[in-house]
Design a protein around this nucleic acid. Structure first.
Lengths: 343, 343
DNA sequence: TTGAAAGCGCTAACAT
DNA sequence: ATGTTAGCGCTTTCAA
């Protein structure tokens, strides 16, 4: 068994096939293959296969200034929202011939900066950013840079950057109305950080909807993160200060779980004593105890649309920024019910 | 506002700083910076910062033959097992200065081949493969290639390749013994594809354990995939043919969920009528209805250890292949209970 | 301590 | 239809 030798390069293929290196290059490139004599073409390709030739993408990228890779930055791939989103992006990019460079930032600006820098150094052709704050220094730096950019799931206030985001406004509205229509009159909101677009928009929508329904809002609290622990902690606060609340709109499903857990700990059962609506309809939301009533956001589509938008931006960098709103729909399950008669 | 110009290259920095390009290169490289006059060093670095210089990773990689990127291939990032695993790998790689190229194959060999080819073309310095079959053509091709390789979660029968896998044998043993100790005597196994190492090993362990306990195995079925649908379908079969089974060891948590759903549909309640043990302890497993009793595998560690192993292989390609077994532990929750007295 | 020059592997404009 | 040549942006050996 021969030792693994250095992999063959284009020159080796050319010599083995008895043609010039540029001819070999043309033969191995879809776009230029047509220029060649069919027999030469065939011969070069066979030789390449025989040698196990594989083009060196770095050399090609250096020359063509296209790496055929895209960088995607998420807060945490471990948050159930992101795997389907990443998968959607991946599928679209794959079909377009692009690879995906992925990293998690834990909402740490320094880390995000370093990771984006590394992506830019590796010459990604575009960036999918899912960690934006409403006023995000990193996004601001990047928007004036050369790499096409699409924001995912969250966007910035000032606009001017392409983004694919859920319809936060309509979603939170539906959630509040659902509780209202079940008979709930004492509603609260436990949302994510107001520094994020979806934290702020869902909150604003809740406030407006409650006012429009003629209710007096019990409370609207801001959890420090979109996760279970933050939901739990914030709900402790809520339930201590407003024990009579019967319906809660949560900023997302993870927060909802934390809220339900905090309630349960105080003997407040969901949905008997309190109804909670989540947001996203993450994986397994319907199999939880209780099954979550939630606003379903097609997470795969969010990623896929973002990747499509990015691809069109890569093809035409002068294209105007565009924001795509992905609509959600209410999915009624077991975490909401009519309030007790006594209420 | 100035239009975005071409990004500066090393030559621009050198000229602006009034030094030769090679001096600029030395200044911007940790390893060679010590060679320079401190003042020159400082001057070059400031100039580089001022220009917003960013090294072109492709050019560097072309020269150094190191891309500082690693490719990771998983069956589906949407399967809850993988996000923590990917995250573990990502964290280790990030610390080592590497980026992660990720792709999902849907257990499709052709797709996997194309994606690995793309990664190899982009000159990844190593590969993390989480989709191996026990006899995997792609792994066989790759093992003789130049890129260091570490198998994740699943390994191949013939060995000779580094791998980080859960302790399937011990895990399935604990699961079966747990059911036995609760009083169950009619046990079945619903596992994943036998073509995978964890499908086969968990099954073998179950068989042996049941025999050792002196029980007659009710059935051992092979689901077509490690997912909920396959669990549901396989459980239909199981419950039709063996309605008296009281304890089931599932190949993983998703299969367990499908099994429980199929049972519920027939009026067989978990854990009252049937006990089910999962495998992995995926995210939210404890919040499901019922909360899953399962074998907890530290998924993050699987990915982290694999990345560490790969890094050491990158540093020393002649290092001997090594298999790391990650142990699991039984986590008892609500999907298992003593069988009904009548049994 | 710095400069000169070659070359990583490839593509593409130009020449034939 | 194919060959010639320059050069993408960088690192590194060699020389001074």
């Amino acid at each position: 068994m021969a030792a693994a030798r250095r992999s063959p390069r284009l020159k080796d293929v050319a010599e083995a096939a008895g043609v010039h290196i540029s001819t070999a290059s043309r033969a191995l490139n879809e776009r230029t293959a047509a220029l060649l004599n069919p027999q030469t073409l065939e011969r070069v390709r066979e030789t390449a296969d025989g040698l196990g030739y594989r083009v060196n993408g770095m050399a090609r990228a250096l020359k063509t200034r296209r790496s055929l890779s895209i960088g995607m930055v998420v807060p945490d791939i471990t948050n159930p929202f992101f795997p389907p989103t990443v998968r959607g992006a991946e599928d679209v990019l794959d079909r377009a011939g692009y690879s995906l460079l992925l990293s998690s930032t834990d909402n740490d600006l320094g880390k995000a900066r370093r990771q984006v820098a590394a992506m830019l150094e590796s010459q990604v052709d575009g960036l999918l950013l899912a960690m934006a704050l409403r006023d995000d220094p990193l996004v601001n730096e990047l928007r004036s840079g050369n790499a096409p950019l699409v924001l995912v799931n969250r966007t910035i206030d000032r606009g001017g950057v392409s983004a694919v985001v859920p319809d936060d406004f309509h979603g939170a509205l539906e959630a509040a109305e659902h509780l209202y229509s079940l008979g709930h009159r004492r509603l609260a909101f436990v949302g994510g950080p107001l520094a994020t677009s979806n934290g702020a928009r869902r909150r604003a929508s809740f406030d407006q909807t409650v006012a429009r329904l003629g209710l007096k809002e019990v409370a609207a609290l801001e959890a420090v993160a979109f996760d279970e622990d933050a939901g739990y902690a914030t709900a402790q606060d809520l339930l201590t200060r407003h024990p009579r609340v019967t319906g809660v709109v949560a900023g997302n499903d993870l927060l909802a779980i934390g809220i339900i857990a905090a309630a349960a700990e105080r003997g407040i059962a969901c949905p008997q004593d309190i109804s909670v609506v989540g947001f996203n309809d993450m994986l397994l939301a319907g199999r939880l105890q209780p099954p979550l009533t939630t606003i379903r956001i097609p997470q795969y589509d969010v990623g896929a649309r973002a990747a499509e938008l990015l691809m069109s931006l890569v093809d035409d960098p002068d294209r105007n920024p565009e924001t795509v709103l992905i609509s959600g729909e209410l999915v009624i399950r077991g975490s909401t019910a009519a309030p007790r008669a006594a209420d």
